[in-house]
Design a protein around this nucleic acid. Sequence first.
DNA 1: ACAATACTTTACGTTTACGTAAACGTAAAT
DNA 2: ATTTACGTTTACGTAAACGTAAAGTATTGT
Lengths: 148, 148
Amino acid sequence: MSKTFSITELAQEFAVTNRTIRFYETEGMLTPLREGQRRIYRPRDRVRLKLILRGKRLGLSLQEIREVIDLYDAAKGEAGQLQLLLDKIESRREDLEHKRRDIDTTLADLDDVAAKCRERLRQLDLDQVSQETSDGEIKSLKRGRAAK
Amino acid sequence: MSKTFSITELAQEFAVTNRTIRFYETEGMLTPLREGQRRIYRPRDRVRLKLILRGKRLGLSLQEIREVIDLYDAAKGEAGQLQLLLDKIESRREDLEHKRRDIDTTLADLDDVAAKCRERLRQLDLDQVSQETSDGEIKSLKRGRAAK
DNA sequence: ACAATACTTTACGTTTACGTAAACGTAAAT
DNA sequence: ATTTACGTTTACGTAAACGTAAAGTATTGT
């Protein structure tokens, strides 16, 4: 009923190699069906791959990604496990929020640098204009006027 | 005038090994002064180390981190370079914002799982209470009532 | 029938980011 | 004087995450 995918389809959709997808399988992170020898990926395999790649973008190791995915799966688990699970989730949340703050800080820093950049560009423009109006033509680009 | 640090001070402050700090130096990412044979780290070295480690938490490779740091340094660069620099900054910003969205998505997912978790816990509690009131004591934990 | 296409397994190679051990230098404390 | 603490260089080792052939299988179009 629901759609399935070949290895190459998935590889292309997510811009990874077939080898990478097979590797994730040997690591027990994907479990496609087989049709004879060929791998058949169901939507749930695709979701998993998506989770794996998202984790990678965040700099998680495959081991950490495995743990995250286990969190999802563990939602099937029973009581005693549940509190432990909630604890793990909380800890993961703290890690992610830390990363979020890192990102925000970095973005602010980049803004800062970009602002100084644009300022400097404006300054160079002005230099040029005043040279045009006072000189009638541009001789050469001034260099070395430090931005303090 | 301004404070300096020994390698171990820095290592402890940021919870890395001395080896790691030396490694970053061989990679040209840190350039401490020397006092005889010993390395003397200035505040700017400390800032760099902080940038490096922040980058690592975000999953950047040392190469990528180098490029980010170059962006900061390149703020000394002149005109022709400036636009190119702004472009690089913009591209890095997009990458970070992508990661931010990834994080938000993941946080939302985790919330979801946690919610289902708590719900299931409440359910288990209720089962237990009804068993206590109807039975007078707890026989065993029910299992297998799928959450659908 | 046969070539092309898509997929498979097996297995060794590679890069990154350090770990770890060996052997030694320098300065302060006992 | 020598132990202790802290640092140094040199160099081989290693785990993670794939890359990259090599050689075989299965299906599909002509």
